[in-house]
């Protein structure tokens, strides 16, 4: 905690332009209208079966309008099976309802909803819609950009929509949880722009927490990440997430995330001149 705020304070001090294309969470800002994006992400963790487990996610992102955007994704993993197999599909949509812009700064607020379908039978308390469970999630995001520093917080409610009755008798499961996050992003390079082709380098630090609503359990993770942006259209993200405190039954207390994302501007047909 103290480490996080020290880093945040440092980022404030050197604050000069910055970034909110977070690796572990979504900002309140939307992608451009009529833009499309393609993302591949891999999550790696050491599970309780003594081997490295993997999840591969493919996501399509669409900017429906300047206020609406949606993600559709699917995932494959070997986290609940012996080999990698298809496990889930997910839809996410976000609506930006406040946007206050100033030169090199902005404040945005957005509401989002998410639905997922998964074939897995999760035996953990951690609620996750990235492939682990069938469920629904809704929440709000507030994002503030201050030149090179961007701060964002998310508060959401997640409900598991999965029938897990076959596991009763072992222990009772979590079905409802409150998730929260606080994210900071900082544009480290370039110090001065000279073109769209220049590679940008961003540093991120996110705090990701969850608290079960139907039993006494929760966790708080810290997630540092780095991001390269090539040609102003391709992102490469590398992140590591680890638990700093918690008593929730989880698949793993730490994981690696690597993702690559490409944005295609004006991919959808325009109605205006």
């Amino acid at each position: 905690m103290r480490f996080f705020f020290t880093l945040l304070g440092l980022a404030w001090l050197v604050s000069a332009g910055a970034q909110e294309l977070y690796v572990f969470s979504e900002p309140a800002s939307n992608m451009p209208a009529r833009a499309a994006g393609l993302k591949y992400a891999a999550k790696l963790l050491d599970g309780d079966r003594g081997r490295t487990e993997q999840r591969h996610m493919i996501e399509m992102q669409l900017g429906l309008s300047k206020k609406w955007m949606t993600h559709v994704s699917t995932s494959f993993s070997d986290m609940y099976s012996n080999g990698v197999r298809w496990e889930s599909a997910r839809i996410y949509t976000k609506y930006r309802f406040i946007s206050i812009d100033d030169v090199h700064r902005h404040f945005r607020a957005a509401a989002f909803g998410e639905l997922s379908y998964s074939v897995n039978y999760p035996m953990y308390d951690e609620l996750s819609l990235e492939g682990d469970q069938s469920g629904a999630r809704a929440g709000v995001i507030l994002t503030q950009l201050l030149h090179k520093l961007a701060l964002s917080s998310t508060l959401s409610y997640t409900a598991s929509l999965q029938d897990r009755i076959q596991h009763i008798g072992i222990h009772s499961y979590t079905y409802n949880a409150l998730n929260y996050s606080l994210s900071a992003g900082y544009l480290l390079f370039p110090r001065k722009y000279n073109g769209y082709g220049q590679t940008n380098f961003n540093l991120y630090l996110e705090m990701l927490g969850s608290r079960a609503l139907d039993k006494q359990a929760g966790f708080l993770d810290l997630a540092p990440a780095v991001q390269f942006i090539f040609s102003s259209n391709t992102k490469l993200n590398l992140g590591y997430r680890f638990q700093v405190s918690g008593d929730m039954e989880r698949m793993a207390e730490s994981s690696f995330l690597i993702s690559i994302e490409r944005t295609f501007l004006n991919a959808l047909k325009s109605k205006s001149p």
């Binding site: 833009a35 030169v103 090199h104 700064r105 950009l145 544009l187 769209y196 259209n233 501007l265 004006n266």
Partner: peptide
């Protein structure tokens, strides 16, 4: 207003470029 990143500026640039009456755009990132 509302941006600092080159990726964001590129989105503005590409949108402006699509306007039929625009001949040329120079950017000061």
């Amino acid at each position: 207003s509302g941006l600092t990143c080159a990726m964001c500026a590129r989105a503005v640039y590409k949108n402006l470029e699509a306007l039929t009456f625009v001949e040329k755009i120079d950017t000061d990132l």
